[in-house]
Amino acid sequence: MTAKATTMASPEKIIEDALQKGEKSLSEYDSKRVLAAYGIPVTLEKTVKNKNDAVSAAKEIGYPVALKGSGEQLSHKTELDLIDLDLNNDESVSRSFERLVNRTDVKVDEVLVQQMVKGTRELMAGLIRDKHFGPCVMFGLGGIFTEILQDISFRAAPLSKWDTIQMMAEIRGKKIMDAFRGKPPVNREALASILSKIGEIGLVHKQIIEIDINPLKLIDGNPVAVDALIVLK
């Protein structure tokens, strides 16, 4: 269930299974399993189908946690009100689980119990497959301002160290990566490695046409994928 355990999953298998089921994208959980297989840090999380499992998963991960309802066609969880954040004890986890599975307007198949990552600094990273230049990695400001500010940079895979340094230097809001309000600066080595690994994923898995890691949050300056979406061909 932890990031360590998920690295055991084979990305080929995850993608193949989803394609066989006719899915156009991977679930958040499976998307992160693919990322984790390439050494990209993701939140600790587990999918559960009953309340008791939800509570024990929460205990194992450690409070506070977030619960997210998931199911086919449910890739926009914020808009659908399928996320409960900052749950601090067994009771609130139970209540949230009940609320999510008892929704009548959308069909929640399972619930994701996830490590709660605090912090206000939100970055994003992703991948698109360009018809001229193949897999291109994107980096920029994440969270709710992603599409408003469009403060982003691109490079075609494979990425050199220099490419990753330039990607970070090109965004207007680059100061977000410096020490900020008592928080440490971003671990740029770790961030550079995430960007080049996203490029590697794009080069290896031709069935992946887009990747979205948003937000990419910081734990003691180290970037962690908090939400992720992998779109398939």
């Binding site: 156009k24 994208s25 890739s75 994003m124 992703g126 991948l127 698109i128 360009d130 001229h132 230049f133 291109c136 994107m138 992603t146 599409e147 469009q150 982003i152 940079s153 691109f154 490079r155 075609a156 490419d163 330039q166 090109e170 046409i209 887009e210 990747i211 979205d212 948003n214 979406l229 779109v231």
Partner: peptide, 22 residues
């Protein structure tokens, strides 16, 4: 038509600029 944030912001002009820099 792109399904992700990344896709919707990846205009060819941004990609071209990046390719030139790279």
């Amino acid at each position: 038509a792109a399904a992700s944030h990344t896709g919707s912001m990846a205009g060819s002009s941004r990609i071209n600029k990046a390719i030139f820099r790279q």
